[in-house]
């Protein structure tokens, strides 16, 4: 079994923390993993993406082939659309609904969300609003991971919860609890 995930967002939104949690869970589960990250210049407010490949068998390429991704996981709706050529026909899109507008020619929001909703297998949520309502505003990325958990057959929600505990342990109990709460809200689809 293998799962290829395209993680997307804007520099500074915390997609690498999502990758770290999934990576921790995958390692603990004894899965093979490759995770190609973007460092350097493009992190300055530009589009960023990470290829995350999980498999029960050894993985060759660090990059996901076109049409090969099982899941696009995006912190921003337009960034979710950027990687559609990589999404397999049966693949799912899990994305934040809230545009991050830092460019003058950002598309019309209604048209953009309409295009997102027209995809065959899409889940979107205003993850920042959810995180705020949980009084955990910095955990929006874990809301997104919770939403994604429903599509990740290769890892169980409990394996992801354990990984959240491990990854955030050094930041203290409050941060761990906030992130777990955010994850559960995403998983349960609470609005």
């Amino acid at each position: 079994m293998k799962t290829d995930i395209k993680l997307a967002g804007v520099g500074g939104q915390g997609i690498l923390s999502i990758a770290t949690v999934i990576g921790e869970a995958a390692t603990a589960a004894g899965l093979h993993l490759k995770q190609a990250e973007v460092h350097g210049m493009s992190q300055r407010g530009g589009d960023v993406q990470s290829d995350l490949r999980l498999s029960t068998d050894p993985i060759h390429s660090d990059l996901i082939p076109q049409g090969g991704a099982d899941l696009i996981l995006s912190m921003e709706p337009m960034e979710a659309l950027r990687y559609l050529p990589y999404l397999s026909p049966e693949g799912a899109v899990v994305t934040s609904s809230r545009p991050f507008v830092n460019i003058p020619d950002y598309p019309d929001e209604a048209a953009l969300l309409q295009e997102v909703d027209a995809l065959p297998n899409v889940t979107r949520m205003d993850i920042e609003q959810v995180a705020k309502s949980l009084l955990a505003p910095r955990s929006a990325n874990m809301v997104l991971l919770g939403m994604a958990a429903r599509h990740l057959e290769i890892l169980s929600p409990d394996e992801l919860r354990t990984a959240i505990r491990t990854v955030f342990a050094r930041k203290g109990d409050k941060v761990v609890e906030d992130n777990l709460k955010a994850f559960d809200a995403g998983y349960e689809g609470l609005q």
Binding site: D47, Q66, P85
Partner: peptide
Amino acid sequence: SNEDGHAPAHNLAARPPQLC
């Protein structure tokens, strides 16, 4: 050739890096 993915999106703009 690898599998065809979805068609490229319409509502898409370039997002180059910028000064903070």
